[in-house]
Design a protein around this nucleic acid. Structure first.
Lengths: 108, 108
DNA sequence: TTGAAAGGCAACCAGATGGTTGCATATCAT
DNA sequence: ATGATATGCAACCATCTGGTTGCCTTTCAA
């Protein structure tokens, strides 16, 4: 729920890689997600716990396996609520920067 | 330049607050950015260094003052290159999740 | 029923991170 | 010139983070 948890979860390259992996194929088990990670299964478990805490991954126990599903809603929320306001003024901000830099160049 | 630096820079709430502050008023000095931060000026300097390394903030020395300008381009890039691909399949992924959960409910 | 497979849990460890204090440097204004 | 202002730099410190190893529990299949 907390936006901070989502940002911190996205800060780690391995966690983004896990999301990418689930994005490519949803509902993978822990062992499947470990393939190509070069870290131990326990370390991946910790990463998944952080992703679950941020509500980016939804686990689903099925027998002795735990399937992991991507939940892109928090990512969508970030794009809407936070990144959106920066994009809206992107060109204007770039224009301001350019103008300020040029003004400074004139003064020096 | 590196997307990882941008993600890690955005992971800290104080750094996001600094970006918000610059978004509200561009070109602030270090001391101006310290207002309402509850940490020392030196700590803010470190945060700004991380934001500069991620190219999210562009500094501009002017006399004894250092003005800080927001650069929203890396944020735009993240939205385009990374978040975009998740949003594109957002509704589909949600549908998949719902279907999988319902299938599991039927089986249990 | 028993071995193998999937996963959970806890202790431990090194390095990164975020903060502090103290002092130095540069620039402006009087 | 000189004090005040704005910033830089370095040492230090506590905590967080990401990783490991070791062992336990649960579940499936032969």
């Amino acid at each position: 729920m907390s936006m901070d948890a989502v940002f911190r979860a996205l800060a780690d390259p391995i966690r983004r890689q896990l999301l990418d992996s689930l994005h490519a194929r949803n509902g993978q088990t822990l062992h499947e997600l470990c393939v190509g990670c070069d870290i131990t299964r326990q370390a991946v478990t910790k990463h998944l716990a952080i992703l679950e805490a941020a509500n980016l991954v939804v686990p689903l126990k099925q027998g002795r396996e735990k399937l992991h599903y991507l939940n892109a809603v928090p990512i969508y929320d970030i794009a809407e609520r936070w990144i959106g306001k920066y994009e809206r003024h992107r060109l204007q901000a770039l224009g301001d920067l350019k103008r300020d830099l040029e003004r400074n160049a004139d003064e020096s």
